[in-house]
Design a protein around this nucleic acid. Structure first.
Length: 425
RNA sequence: GUGGGUAUAGCUUAGUUGGUUAAAGCGCCAGUUUGUGGCACUGGAGACCGUCGGUUCGAAUCCGAUUAUCCACCCCA
């Protein structure tokens, strides 16, 4: 026997029996996006490697060790997208959308790729719903984007389990000043830091704030916080953002420890956290990136957005025992009693399908009883029994499998479909 | 990349101190006198016990390696 090839590490098949979940989520995403007037944008799975190096940041873990990078046959260095914002910014610049009508509001539901060790809520191929809003530096935009993310979770009945955490990291100048202060602070306490944090001190001192060791946590208590280093404009902006959140009756907590890992963030950053999820509990993360468009070669255009982990969303729903309603079942199963009537059933199916009725007939040569049983198993709403007697009389039994009620249906050409449609509705 | 747990039919698991045909439930298929499902009963298909190597007369069981998976770290959605 040949060895079976299995799905690659950190990837997952979505099977037919889960179709209804994805259908439902897609509907929620689409309808919510529509209510905020965000429009879909579809960008390629792979981009020039350079795009991510420049936008996400050369020093980030994503770029340094998590990207699926390869050379194509023409020698180009390509990378499977590890996040959504870079590709979207590239696309809107390429098509000049930021010279068009503003604000520009787009969303996407796509797969992303990161070479990481898989664990609960973390895959190498994962689904993310995300949105980006270009052209506004008003705090109303910040509030709207956060409200959008929250609204999706609310639609999924997760609102009660979710905490919105916000912070501001300031503009590039505030950021610089802050990181300098942070570095200085921890440099003084160096001797008490854990091994991991000594490394962080070199790479990204802000990460020390997240350390789980009690020792480091204590040291972090008195560490400088971003909010104290904001320039006047950034401070005002953050105050205004909080105001607008209150205005929308969106509950939040200010968490100075939120310092997102991607380089491009400025000013507002936020996370939606579900504490039931264990280590990977950030369901949604996002913020402003006012400098990115310019850095990518465009004009000075403020922007913000978020990414929402769909796989984590499904985990959260499971954890809170929130069931997604299954799709409607098959409308009708047409049973052929005798073997030679199968082709007849096929024709009836064809007629009904032209009217967009979901129906099926036997493809396995099963007995009457087995066909009925099958129809029951797949939860068909109705069965139509087709035998030689019925064909002679031009009349067949339409049985409601739930109520067991039987109705006579004419098999005459012009009456058949209309009668069935009437009953199915 | 670093730790720890796990690996037996499609799924959930049993397998006693190594002993010959690897067990059960669910699911699947068929039948219970031949034209009406869900229940019950009977039967059937389906596993080289993750892979490779070692110890042994003998390995699902012990040892080693490898791969996958789960959990945590790192990082992030």
């Amino acid at each position: 026997m040949k060895e079976k090839i299995r799905a690659q590490r950190g990837t997952k098949d979505i099977l037919p029996n889960e179709e209804y979940k994805w259908n439902f989520l897609k509907k929620v995403f689409e309808s919510t996006a529509k209510s905020y007037n965000f429009k879909i944008i579809k960008t390629p799975v792979f981009e020039a490697t350079e795009l991510f190096n420049r936008s996400v940041g050369e020093t980030t873990d994503i770029v340094q060790k998590e990207m699926y990078t390869f050379k194509d046959k023409g020698g180009r260095s390509l990378t499977l997208r590890p996040e959504g914002t870079a590709g979207v910014v590239r696309a809107i610049l390429e098509h000049g959308l930021c010279n068009f009508m503003l604000p520009l509001k787009v969303y996407y539901l796509d797969t992303f790729y990161r070479y990481e060790k898989p664990q609960s809520g973390r895959y190498r191929e994962f689904f993310q719903f995300g949105c980006e809003l270009f052209g506004s530096n008003l705090s109303e935009a910040d509030a709207e984007v956060m409200h959008f993310a929250f609204k999706i979770l609310d639609e999924l009945s997760l609102a009660n389990y979710i905490e919105l955490k916000v912070n501001s990291v300031g503009c590039s100048r505030c950021k610089k000043k802050y990181f300098h202060a942070l570095h200085e602070y921890f440099e003084l306490k160096k001797s008490a830091l854990c091994q991991m944090c000594l490394e962080r001190l070199q790479k990204n001192p802000a990460r020390i704030l997240d350390c789980k060791s009690q020792q480091c946590e204590n040291i972090s208590l008195n560490a400088p916080i971003t909010l104290d280093y904001l320039c006047n404009e950034c401070y005002q902006h953050f105050e205004s953002v909080k105001d607008k959140l209150k205005n929308l009756k969106l509950k939040y907590t200010v968490d100075p420890k939120i310092v997102r890992g991607l380089d491009y963030y400025t000013r507002t950053v936020f996370e939606l956290v579900d504490n039931s999820l264990g280590a990977q509990k950030t369901v949604c993360g996002g913020g402003r990136y006012d400098n990115l468009v310019k850095e990518m070669g465009g004009r000075d255009l403020p922007a913000l957005g978020f990414g929402l982990g769909v796989n984590r969303l499904l985990l959260a729903l499971e954890n809170h025992n929130i069931k997604i309603k299954k799709d409607d079942n098959l409308d009708l199963y047409i049973i052929n009693v005798q073997e030679d009537l199968r082709s007849c059933a096929v024709v009836f199916c064809r007629v009904l399908r032209e009217n967009f009725i979901s129906c099926e007939c036997d493809l396995l040569g099963r007995s009457l009883k087995a066909q009925l049983k099958y129809a029951d198993r797949i939860c068909a709403r109705f069965v139509l029994v087709l035998g030689s007697e019925e064909l002679e009389k031009k009349e067949a039994d339409l049985k409601n499998l739930k109520t067991r009620e039987i109705k006579k249906i004419s098999l005459k050409k012009y009456e058949f479909a209309t009668q069935i449609i009437k009953i199915l509705k």
